[in-house]
Amino acid sequence: MVNLLTLLVAGLANGSLYALVALGLVLIYKTQDVVNFAHGEILMAGAFIGFSAYTFLHLPYGWSLVAAVLLGGLLGAVIERVAFRRVANQHHITLAMVTVGLSVLMKGLARIPFGRDINTYPPAFKADRVVLWGIPISPQHLLTIAMAASLAVALYLFFRFTALGKKMRATQQTIVGAQLVGINTGNVFASTWALAAMIGAAAGVLAAPLSLLYPDMGTNFLLKGFAAAVLGGFESVPGAIVGGFIVGVVEMLFGGFVSTVFQQVSAFFIIILVLFLKPDGLFGRRALARV
């Protein structure tokens, strides 16, 4: 019989990555009312930035992660300014198509330098695994869980106590209202994209050692993060985190106790089930009007 605890730990480890991806999706959705289908490519871009900084510029591992997060954030802000601001008032289908276009574009651009090979992103730690209370877990997974948890706390504090965080919350609730209290909503949009992209890039650097590095690596994570976000109600930051963990664990339990044949699609069973039974998600207040 397969060990339940081992499955739970592996599920939480994978789920923490899905949670980070979901966070980025939720932030953009809350502010701009659009599902960012290019978020997987932001993850990919972050991973390649970190990889380039580490292998070509020989930056220390930690600094290459910092470089990925900062440049990832810059990329997010540039995308908002260049590709999004002009069309921000268009129908949400148009906006969604813009993100799909961005996704294709970014994959295409990444293939120019990186399309001829699958690269390997070294993990943060040399050790293959540690055994905690009899359960084997890789240090990379521990790092991912720790990152997801601390990012969740940091985001909570950010939205609660910082001026920019409050402005973002205000803009998420009503854009006109935010303008009426003197908030530069353009800056808020750019900052939101930057923040979402920074989280995405961090997720990319954490995911790459597990998934290998290639221009299409983001797609799978986007789908899982999407499932997590739907589960969490798509409007809720804690919902995204919890949703991510649930998707990760359900996947493992499904594969472990039912069948590996449907393990990967179990995430989509979750989406369908949630939309069917509780369309607002576990944490949602409003109905999911648009996807």
Binding site: A170, Q173, T174, L180, V181, G182, I183
Partner: peptide, 30 residues
């Protein structure tokens, strides 16, 4: 709008445009 606001002209919109998820105090602080 943010520049005009900073110069001292503030609009109370017909649709009020309050921040629905924030408390009365938070709305005022914003």
């Amino acid at each position: 709008s943010n520049r005009i606001f900073a110069r001292g002209m503030t609009l109370v919109a017909q649709s009020r445009q309050l921040f629905p998820e924030m408390t009365v105090r938070e709305n005022l602080e914003m």
